[in-house]
Write a protein that binds this DNA or RNA. Structure first.
Length: 885
RNA sequence: GCCCGGAUGGUGGAAUUGGUAGACACGUUGGACUUAAAAUCCAAUGGCCGUUUAGGCUGUGCGGGUUCAAGUCCCGCUCCGGGUACCA
């Protein structure tokens, strides 16, 4: 039987499409629902690469399996189609981005369909479709109309915000400002990262640590622009807590926790000597107040100029200017050597009323905490480094917990910094009444905070690294903001009935030089006049690409609804997403933003669950072999030839070493799924992607492996695809046992996303069945069922061959019959002092004393006992026997 | 620096979570079929020693430890990958 994979695969893909086999109905009467989601792709111009089908195949296997287990499965696909490349292409060629996008989506859809993935294509969505982004704009309006009630820890409608009387007394503008300052979405001046190559503002998250733009590698600079921002930090605590109950990889949760960056400590107020100015600092170590020997303000801090004394004015001004310039340079330079200048001012340390100098230095960041610190050089490494450089006093206030006496002495003398725990010294003051001497860190912090609060010098405080989310981009190809800026300086959002606000057609897509979006040139679209003749201008920025992907999982639930974002009943039925699979590169941004929006929607009563994604799994990256010379120079794949397992440069003949690297055009090692499907078929592609190794591991692509699984499918087809091999006689006991073991193994492995071992068990069974040569129809049909999630085309073909006229997509997953798995005997490995010596087949019922005597009296034991009596015999039933001599 | 992963044959990877290390597959070698090659099938395959028959030693990045028993647990390292970075 020839394995005509192309024929079979085309036939079944057409069948599934014609019969809408995988159409998903909102059958709310079935209590078993399963929502399984892929991270939808950005449809790039280069089409699918082999990394995409990895995650898609994994979810497809689970989806097909769950259907066979009787679940109502929601398994949709769509396109995250706003993005820069289509716009850049438009600039070069004048082609409208929507044309490019449609073409790319068509390619992606065709490629994905050829893999035989069981999506419900009737639910396909596209973030660039006005019917979709209408609701993205709608959510933005909700964010604009929401404030965060810190007492209730929840977002509420802006109409429910009580404006205090003292604000009301100040008039309409003050009220307006008060309200705007509370909105989750707000418009304000912001210092932003600007990429002059892409002519775009970047979120902090899009700037790499070396100060370059992650998209293009060009260095970014700072710029002040009016921007839309989202107050995600209000949700920091809930985003943090919410992680605890999610079935996500711990590493991803840790990354989110780090990103949110919660730290607990206190705010402390320092009065400036001879003024009534006050500096408030945030510190996690209020217990070290006695060691504070100076203070530092960020150069941008509003008090820096104010408290500088005349004689230091010039120096400080220069420093402020220099550091503003400096932040335009490579940011890593900042990290190297600390600089700063004295302001001439002194602050009063509240715990002992001592005067300490106030400096300004750019190692203190303006965006974190209060932008000012108390410096405790003896117990903070950054402060220590700074103090050493500028000769500031270093006062040790803690006897360190260390047995290194020499180190201890150096620390107490202030020659070394100690940041760990210890016992306080020099930490009391009779005037202020605080005394933490002889305490340790935890108690010291506690007691100091109490003292600060009792004396109104500070308060317990929690700080987060998470900043406001910069939410606008100077781009054409994104969701337009449903916002009008009026000539009187007010802002209004569109009414829901005016949505969607579509993009205007443009002739040119070039952005302006100074952060102006291309939309600023769309005259007709841009200018509006209200009923009273008031002139206004639409917002010309568009939303970032994150916007569309923040909530797409909700639209899949009810993609054609034009009355509301989705029906409440359907949301209640389908949410939350039961399994979400995608790349780890979205560990922080997409997943955090998405959770944030979900929580806002939850607070406003639009969704029924607090978290969108119950279980998350990250597939590993698919790498490829690459070649390099002895000096480490990379050699493109087409310049390499293999001889006797060694690799040589085709031209120079130099021997090369094989390494594993990311697929890249320059290395010429990119694998195109289309080629694999053409040569080996979609089932082989699917099987190989899963057989390579654990789903979450990074692993190199090796075409020899594809040949391996292709060979397996060929053998499956040869045996099971030939009715001559289907017998009416009974199956042997061992094949029935193997079959049931395989059912159990594959089912369990699918549940645990361990597809490589599931496939291995299918191979083991097939190898045994081939040895037998014949199987019963019942066995063959069962095998087709368990093969189905992995290689659905071949499985359907076999199923039809056995006389079934319906697709096996909804056949019941076979039940494991424990009867067939029972064992009476076990071949025990018998070891002496832990070393395996021989094997002994024994009844599993046999009592221990009988086993012992059989082992001792076995002739093979004589050599190892050497006439001695064993000290102990350990018998683990069904496992092992170990004789201790 | 800090936070996560990881290291097992020539290669990708298994190992019931403390109980026969190397499942399954690739590759290699030998054989069958063939005029020949490809394809297919059968067999062998961690390393070393021994071999007429056995068999033995050794082996999961390195060094210690716990245990009747360690790839798996504990302590101390090395190397590789990812994230993050003056966050007070």
């Amino acid at each position: 039987m020839e394995y005509k994979f192309r024929e079979i695969e085309k036939k079944w893909q057409k069948y599934w499409e014609d019969n809408k086999t995988f159409k998903c109905y909102d059958d709310t009467s079935n209590p078993k629902k399963y929502y399984i989601l892929d991270m939808f792709p950005y449809p790039s111009g280069s089409g699918l690469h082999v990394g995409h089908p990895e995650g898609y195949t994994a979810t497809d296997i689970v989806a097909r399996y769950k259907r066979m287990k009787g679940f109502n499965v929601l398994h949709p696909m769509g396109w995250d189609a706003f993005g820069l490349p289509a716009e850049q292409y438009a600039m070069q060629t004048g082609t409208h981005p929507s044309v490019t996008t449609r073409k790319n989506c068509d390619t992606f859809r065709r490629q994905i369909k050829e893999i035989g993935l069981s999506y419900d294509w009737d639910r396909e969505i596209n973030t660039t479709d006005p019917e979709y982004f209408k609701w993205t704009q709608w959510i933005f309006i909700q964010l604009y109309k929401t404030w965060y009630d810190e007492k209730a820890c929840k977002g509420r409608h802006i109409d429910e915000l009580q404006v205090p009387d003292y604000i009301r007394k100040e008039g309409k503008d003050a009220v307006e400002k008060y309200i705007n300052d509370k909105r989750l979405a707000y418009y304000d001046n912001a210092q932003v990262w600007w990429c002059s190559s892409c002519k775009i503002v970047c979120a902090n998250e899009e700037v790499l640590t070396d100060g370059t733009h992650e998209k293009c590698g060009h260095p970014v600079t700072k710029m002040n622009l009016k921007q839309w921002m989202l107050r995600i930090p209000h949700y920091a605590e809930r985003l943090l807590e919410g992680l605890d109950n999610l079935d996500w990889p711990e590493g991803i949760k840790d990354q989110q926790r780090n990103w949110i960056g919660k730290s607990t400590g206190a705010e402390v107020d320092f009065m400036i000597d001879n003024t009534d100015l006050k500096i408030t600092v945030f510190t996690t170590r209020p217990d070290t107040l006695f060691g504070a020997t100076y203070m530092v303000l960020a150069p941008e801090h509003e008090l820096t100029r104010q408290l500088t004394t005349p004689e230091f004015k010039n120096k400080v001004e220069k420093y402020i200017k220099d550091s503003a310039l400096k932040s335009d340079l490579d940011r890593t330079d900042l990290a190297k050597e600390k600089t700063g200048v004295f302001t001439g001012a002194y602050a009063i340390n509240p715990v002992n009323n001592k005067k300490i100098p106030v400096w300004t230095a750019d190692y203190v960041l303006t965006g974190y905490g209060t932008g000012a610190i108390m410096a405790v050089p003896a117990h903070d490494e950054r402060d220590f480094e700074f103090a050493e450089k500028y000769g500031l006093p270093i006062n040790c206030i803690m006897k360190p917990d260390t047995n290194d006496e020499e180190l201890k002495e150096r620390i107490v003398k202030g020659e070394e910094c100690w940041t760990e725990d210890g016992v306080y010294i020099n930490s009391s003051d009779t005037v202020t009444g605080i005394d933490i001497n002889n305490l340790k860190k935890d108690k010291g912090i506690e007691k100091t905070i109490k003292w600060l609060e009792d004396n109104k010098r500070g308060r317990a405080m929690v700080n987060y690294k998470l900043r406001d989310w910069l939410f606008s981009r100077q781009r054409y190809w994104g969701e337009p903001f449903p916002v009008i800026h009026w000539e009187d300086g007010t802002i209004s959002v569109l009414d829901e009935s005016e949505l969607p606000l579509e993009l205007p057609d443009m002739e040119k897509y070039e952005p302006g030089e100074n952060g102006e979006s291309p939309l600023a040139n769309a005259g007709n679209w841009l200018n509006v006049v209200d009923n009273n003749g008031r002139k206004g201008r639409r917002e010309t920025n568009t939303m970032p690409q994150w916007a569309g992907s923040c909530w797409y999982y909700l639209r899949f639930i009810d993609p054609e609804n034009n009355q509301s974002i989705f029906s409440k009943e359907k949301e209640k039925y389908w949410m939350p997403v039961d399994l979400y699979i995608g790349g780890a590169e979205h560990a922080v941004l997409h997943l955090l933003y998405s959770r944030f929006w979900h929580k806002v929607l939850y607070d406003l009563g639009h969704v029924t669950h607090n978290e969108p994604y119950l279980k998350l799994f990250n597939q590993g990256m698919i790498l490829a072999f690459a070649y390099e010379t002895k000096t480490g120079a990379k050699v493109p794949g087409d310049m390499v030839e293999e001889k006797d397992g060694k690799f040589f440069h085709k031209e120079s003949g130099e021997e090369l070493s094989q390494i594993v690297a990311k697929m890249s055009k320059s290395l010429k090692n990119v694998v195109n799924p289309d080629d694999i499907i053409e040569s080996y078929g979609a089932d082989s592609l699917r099987l190989y992607e899963m057989f390579m190794g654990p789903l979450d591991a990074s692993k190199p692509w090796d075409e020899k492996g594809v040949k391996g699984v292709f060979g397996f499918l060929t053998r499956v087809n040869r045996l099971f695809g030939n009715l001559d091999n289907i017998t009416d006689e009974k199956d042997d006991k061992d094949i029935i046992k193997a079959l049931h073991q395989t059912i159990m193994k594959t089912g369990g492995d699918i549940e645990n996303l361990r597809f490589n071992t599931a496939i291995s068990s299918l191979m083991i069974f097939t190898n045994l069945a081939i040895k037998k040569g014949k199987v019963t129809k019942e066995t063959a049909m069962t095998f087709a069922k368990i093969l189905n999630p992995f290689a659905p085309h071949l499985a359907e073909e076999l199923w039809q061959l056995y006389g079934n006229d319906k697709s096996l997509a909804y056949e019941q997953w076979p039940k494991v019959n424990e009867e067939f798995l029972k064992e009476d005997t076990f071949e025990y490995p018998v070891s002496f002092n832990g070393k395996l010596r021989f094997k002994l087949e024994l009844s599993l019922e046999m009592p221990n004393d009988e086993i012992e005597s059989l082992v001792i009296n076995d002739e093979r034991s004589g050599k190892w006992l050497a006439g001695k009596k064993p000290r102990k015999i350990i018998i683990v039933r069904g496992r092992i026997i170990n004789v201790v001599v």
